[in-house]
Amino acid sequence: MGQGMGRGPIRALFGRELGLALGRGGGPLLALGFYAGVAVLLPLAEGPDPARLAAVAPGAAFASLALASLLTLERLFERDYEDGGLDLLTLGEPGLAVVAAVKCLAQWIATGLPLAAVAPLVAITLGAAPSLAPILFLASLLAGLGFAFIGGVGAALALGARRGGVLIAVIVLPLFTPLVVFGAGAVDAAAAGLNIGPPLALLAAFSLFSVALAPVAMAAACRNALS
């Protein structure tokens, strides 16, 4: 009972965070609605010329993916901070960096995965070739991992600030840039029949780099907010 002590708390936290992420502020539906909304607005603003839309489809899909990923970040640490839960999470064996990593992982699965599933739909609606669907999904999924962890740093830094949401966007959007560049780059390369290896590898490297470093930064930012 309760054995395998090291794992138990982390698994329990993951289950809890996933549940909270799915219910948080409308959950993934809000992000999905926003993402689909941008995809509908773009042709209206840009004009219905298929050739023109197809040219911008991958870039537009990734830019709106980055924006949609921002929406649910504000609540990542804020509720635990406000209700005192973050104090108690700090007093657990795994430590704050692990707590932060688990939260971001849950955020990725709750928001990043549905967004990645919809990404091919959005890009194809905008006029991208249907054959690009697999690479769109893969690149969006990888980018989503980076969005969740880098976004988590912004969310932790904005703890206790009054207009936290705006602050998160200002902190995080510049750091999202490489993910958007490499993600859209991989899809463009696939569309042009070029080697998708380099942009995809850079995308994965940037995401994994953020997975490795962000938890330490988030833990420091949370400690700072608590004290």
Binding site: R16, R79, D80, D83, G85, L88, L91
Partner: peptide
């Protein structure tokens, strides 16, 4: 010591409203 052997019961109860 803090992460293994301390219980903290503060003003806020640390309970999630919807849980």
């Amino acid at each position: 010591a803090q992460s293994h052997d301390i219980h903290f019961a503060g003003h806020q109860d640390g309970l999630k409203a919807q849980a």
